[in-house]
Design a protein around this nucleic acid. Structure first.
Lengths: 108, 108
DNA sequence: TTAATACATGAAAGTTTTTTCATACATTTG
DNA sequence: CAAATGTATGAAAAAACTTTCATGTATTAA
């Protein structure tokens, strides 16, 4: 064993490729507001922007919108309009898993 | 059920407090080099700066040092000198768990 | 002591993120 | 159509982060 197929830095199970994907997810999620949004969407399947703002405790519409747009752009979220509302939902399943993962870590 | 003891945003298991800790860890770790360092230290218990640079594939000493200092400052790492070397090691156990957690997620 | 090795550090530059603000656009309602 | 509601957007400001470079400090070896 301990073959170095793709020169993994260490043997933890995270090779370069995985590492980069994790880094990507971490980076686009590492922000209180965004983590909160992800949680909301992990628990609600789909929510309108206004709704998200409320649940976030009165976050500013514009700022929230920007966060949503960013996450959508990066592929984590998707959105669709219905009337004058726009509903966002999680697209990249991995994100849920990551949060789930973290949530399960009782040590925190 | 569905009691709202501390007004948790959602019921995933991540309340505000946890959320902030996770965000903190994610934020100070969300960088390729830093993730790599964490991995190295998760697997090695303690490494000198030069050693880390090497294993990182010839990273610059100064830059690596800065990353290490940052992580130390934030409480993730600790260091101690021995001769002319300074050895760093993981201090905040949670970090290992988070990475471990992520590494276990086969979906990635 | 001097030189060499291993790191740290601070400042400046460069880059990316976050936040704010004003305004625009789409949809529904009157 | 006009007004109201819900959301997007772009630009500018603000803040945070990353990288580089030059230099400083501690320790060991000559």
């Amino acid at each position: 064993m301990t073959a170095s197929t793709a020169a993994p830095l260490v043997d933890m199970g995270l090779d370069i490729e995985k590492m980069e994907k994790v880094a990507f997810i971490l980076k686009t999620t590492a922000h209180p507001t965004r983590i909160a949004i992800v949680q909301l969407l992990a628990a609600h399947d789909s929510l309108s922007v206004g709704n998200i703002c409320e649940r976030l405790g009165g976050a500013e519409q514009s700022l929230t919108s920007h966060h949503l747009a960013t996450m959508k752009l990066k592929g984590l979220l998707s959105s669709s309009r219905s009337g004058k509302n726009i509903y966002y939902s999680l697209k990249m399943r991995e994100v849920i898993d990551v949060i789930q993962c973290l949530a399960n870590c009782t040590f925190l």
